[in-house]
Amino acid sequence: MVNLIIDGKKITANKDTMILEAARAAGIDIPTLCAHESVSRSGACRLCVVEVKKGNRTKIVTSCLYPVEEGIAVETKNERVLNVRRLVLELLLARNPKSEVIADLAKKLGVAPQPRFIPDTDKGKCILCRSCVRVCEEVVGVSAIGLSCRGSQKTVGPPYNEDSAVCIGCGACAFICPTGHIEMETTEDKRKIWGRTFKMKACDVCGRYFAPEDQLKYISKITGVPLKELAICMDCR
């Protein structure tokens, strides 16, 4: 067990626990956009920054990636931390002016749009947190989407923005996206995502369309369960 102080509170946490989890377990709220329990962490959004004091030295770290250490003192809301968080939110408000999630978070933390930043019109709601890319690679295992280009030109999508041959239409990316950037439209027997239309499978028992056929084929392939055994929806199993 490791002893540390967060915002003046004495806290004991398991070794290898990240500061973020240790703080949350102690009822201290740290905002995040890109830390999701299902995927590995990238430290991209920088909202979860905190200040760590170790001996006489202080530094700003991302709490989602920094494991607890014996004797450190963590500040989650001091001026230096809030300055980074405010900047990040001002930058995101300008990048993704249409994102309700960012607008709500900014409002909650008392951050207003910076009038000197001209809002972007071409970035949608994507903050490039890469949760979608990670879930597709780490959980689904198909890596249908990735990041292309560099810097502010960076975008997320299938290679060359063409129809992905490996996408199974599962929608995990749309589910994990913190801002709702990824659009997925499901209408009865069809699902549209990343420009491709997938045929949905109707449940052999109740007839409800419940999953893309490509997804079921993929599950059958990697688990060895015959496809016909996967033809029944979750409710009817």
């Binding site: 900047l87 930058l91 560099r150 810097g151």
Partner: peptide, 17 residues
Amino acid sequence: VSESCGKCIPCREGVRR
């Protein structure tokens, strides 16, 4: 701006602004 990898927001968006 042209050499930022684009991974984290302060560098990608902040330096651009």
